[in-house]
């Protein structure tokens, strides 16, 4: 780790000022569960680290007049889980429960999770996000890399596990800086981008800017779910993931939003798949069809073709789960005794 200055502002204005001092490479610290590791590996070598977790306005989970819930950047995952305002977002809670590490839940923040740097081993070994314009990934070990959105030089997958569910919920982020009093509200989906050059990040934040809040609108009667294909029960990065939000009226899907995770350099919005689901009943067949559609543009690298199937299954299971059905995988309680499954239709009341 390189020596650095440490600052602990107590207001948003102070934080912006500290982050924008000319000629200083700065980093924002909240929970530190990602940043500290990257600093130890010298992938991040900031001159100044600004800890925003003492800023009172960032420590709250609050509901505004429209019913939207504002999650401050210092709010940890565990606090989100425990908060009564967030009960309406089961898909997000499902993912946090899947981040099965008490330490990460207690120390890691929700905003920090959304901005977790990619897990790509070439990036974390210091070869940069694009790792020699994608060549290292192409010629190297790319078993966990992108199957979608990978035609440019970026081959990593976005690391956030919460972004897919929050995007399906229509979440936004509040960003402040780099100028004093500068503030913008951005769709969460627009926070992310696929870098095309070494100078670009996997998000649109400029130096001196930081996310202060995530704003999640009230969900109405939509059914939501997230499904992650995880190799084990630990906090390791899932192999593929999907989140779904659907409006079901009289057994038919009216509106749908489907976002995949761990498959592309950004959370991957599957618009055509979502469109395909509209007007249909949720059945094993329609869910499978939507899963198939979601990966129709996938282009595997040398070692990750298997992820196409995993992404497809993740979408199918997220759709089934949102509609309240058994996903059919290992989540079904064991021991596995033969049972006669009632037909799906009988569940749709």
């Amino acid at each position: 780790m390189k020596n650095f200055e440490y600052a602990q502002p107590t207001t948003e204005d102070e934080a912006v000022a500290l982050l924008t001092e000319p000629k200083k490479d700065t980093a924002v610290l909240a929970g530190g569960t990602d940043l500290v590791g990257l600093m130890k590996r010298m992938v991040v070598t900031a001159d100044r680290v600004v800890n925003i977790s003492e800023i009172k306005s960032l420590q709250q989970v609050e509901r505004d007049d429209n019913g939207s819930v504002w999650i401050g950047a210092a709010v940890c995952l565990g606090d989100f889980l425990d908060n009564r305002h967030t009960d309406q977002y089961p898909s997000t809670k499902q993912v946090i429960q899947g981040i099965s590490s008490i330490q990460l839940q207690s120390q890691g923040t929700l905003v920090g999770e959304l901005l977790r740097r990619p897990n790509c081993w070439y990036f974390r070994e210091g070869h940069g996000l694009l790792a020699d314009s994608g060549r290292m990934v192409n010629e190297g070990d790319n078993r966990y890399h992108a199957i979608l959105g990978n035609r440019g030089p970026a081959r990593f997958v976005n690391a956030s596990r919460l972004a897919p569910s929050l995007i399906t919920l229509g979440a936004q982020v509040r960003i402040i800086g780099p100028e004093k009093d500068e503030e913008q509200i951005l769709e969460l989906a627009d926070l992310y981008r696929t870098p095309a050059a070494d100078s670009e990040l996997e998000n649109v934040l400029q130096p001196g800017q930081f996310v202060t809040h995530v704003i999640i609108p009230t969900h109405g009667d939509r059914l939501t779910a997230a499904y992650e294909v995880r190799q084990g029960e630990g906090p390791d990065q899932p192999l593929a993931a999907a989140a779904v939000s659907i409006d079901v009226v009289a057994g038919t899907v009216q509106n749908a939003s489907i976002v995949l995770g761990q498959v592309a350099p950004t959370p991957w919005i599957a618009r055509e798949a979502a469109q395909l689901l509209c007007g249909k009943e949720v059945t094993e067949e329609s869910a499978a069809m939507v899963g198939h559609q979601a990966v129709s543009g996938a282009m595997p690298l040398s070692q990750n073709e298997y992820k196409i199937q995993l992404a497809q299954v993740a979408v199918k299971r997220a759709v089934l789960k949102a509609a309240g059905y058994d996903t059919g995988g290992l989540d079904t309680p064991m021991p596995l005794e033969p049972t006669v499954s009632p037909s799906l239709e009988t569940h749709i009341a």
């Binding site: 190297g140 084990g232 029960e233 630990g234 390791d236």
Partner: peptide, 16 residues
């Protein structure tokens, strides 16, 4: 050796 950290060298957890 590209997975030489515990965030990429996979190990089972109690639930496994």
């Amino acid at each position: 050796f590209i997975n030489s950290e515990l965030d990429s060298y996979r190990l089972p957890r109690l639930g496994d």
